[in-house]
């Protein structure tokens, strides 16, 4: 049996009075891609944002339950969230590069976390851009603004930016929803390559994408996990009626 990169035990998320995520217990296997699917507002993004404690930024938001990473429950108040986020990277719905050069976008994180030497940084920048399959497009303009890149390139840059910190897990929140089909397929290819080194949890509203790239899939509906299984099994032979209704397009 494979080790788990992360697992949640009875995770609940509340926005003020609203109970957005209810008793979700999921295990995310190491070096696999896990997809979270479900209709809009089902709590999948909220759940994802709890995993690296991004929900801490929202004052009205409360998260209860356990999130286990190795032998630590990282949902406790004693967790150093700033250090934690170095181990759990995140890629957002819309590409959000910094208002800095391409080089600085990548180097900003590692430099802050202690990589000081210019040569080390140079290497790291190249390595990360290569991993995100964007090195060839950017190597001649590393010191130009990241905003000169296209949307798809920006999103791969953002992936490179997370990769540069050598995280254990990368969380992706609908990373292709703002991209055109060609950029989308490049990012999907990239995700399949990245899983050799990283555990990836991806939220997507695109079932075909989930089917193409993920190993396991969890289906969310109004804050609950309805079904969680191997992707093939879940799409071919779902055990729950709600799941089959959703994947056959009857709602959502």
């Amino acid at each position: 049996m494979q080790a788990n990169a992360l697992s949640t035990k009875k995770l609940n998320v509340y926005y003020g009075e609203k109970h957005a995520v209810q008793d979700v217990s999921l295990d995310f296997a190491e070096k696999q891609v896990t997809a979270l699917i479900g209709p809009s507002g089902c709590g999948k993004s909220t759940f994802l944002r709890s995993l690296n404690r991004m929900n801490d930024l929202i004052p009205s938001c409360r998260v209860t339950g356990d999130i286990w990473m190795k032998e630590h429950n990282i949902n406790g108040s004693e967790t150093d969230v700033v250090a934690l986020r170095k181990h759990i990277g995140m890629v957002f719905q819309r590409p959000n590069p910094f208002h800095k050069s391409i080089y600085e976008n990548i180097a900003f994180g590692p430099r802050y976390h202690g990589v000081k030497k210019k040569a080390d940084l140079d290497n790291l920048v190249e390595e990360s851009l290569r991993k995100a399959a964007i090195w060839d497009e950017t190597k001649d303009r590393l010191h130009k603004s990241a905003f000169a890149l296209s949307g798809g390139q920006q999103q791969r840059l953002c992936i490179a930016r997370s990769v540069a910190l050598k995280p254990d897990i990368i969380l992706m929140d609908e990373p292709t929803s703002a991209l055109d089909p060609i950029s989308t397929s490049r990012v999907e290819d990239l995700i399949s390559e990245l899983k050799q080194d990283y555990s990836i949890v991806i939220v997507t509203h695109n079932m075909h994408q989930a089917a193409r790239i993920s190993d396991k899939t969890a289906f969310f509906l109004s804050g609950h996990v309805v079904e969680y299984d191997e992707t093939d099994k879940l799409f071919m032979d779902p055990s729950q009626k709600q799941t089959s209704d959703y994947i056959s397009g009857r709602f959502g």
């Binding site: 690296n52 991004m54 930024l57 700033v82 250090a83 934690l84 986020r85 170095k86 181990h87 990277g89 995140m90 957002f92 819309r94 959000n96 590069p97 910094f98 208002h99 800095k100 900003f108 994180g109 802050y112 976390h113 953002c158 930016r161 997370s162 910190l165």
Partner: peptide, 27 residues
């Protein structure tokens, strides 16, 4: 400053104060 900039920085494990100084203030 677009809030996505702040999120991006926090997601890299950058402290709040460093985020303010190096990401938000320049913009």
């Amino acid at each position: 400053v677009p809030p996505q900039q702040k999120e991006a920085s926090f997601a890299l494990g950058i402290s709040k104060w460093k985020t303010i100084r190096s990401v938000l203030l320049p913009i």
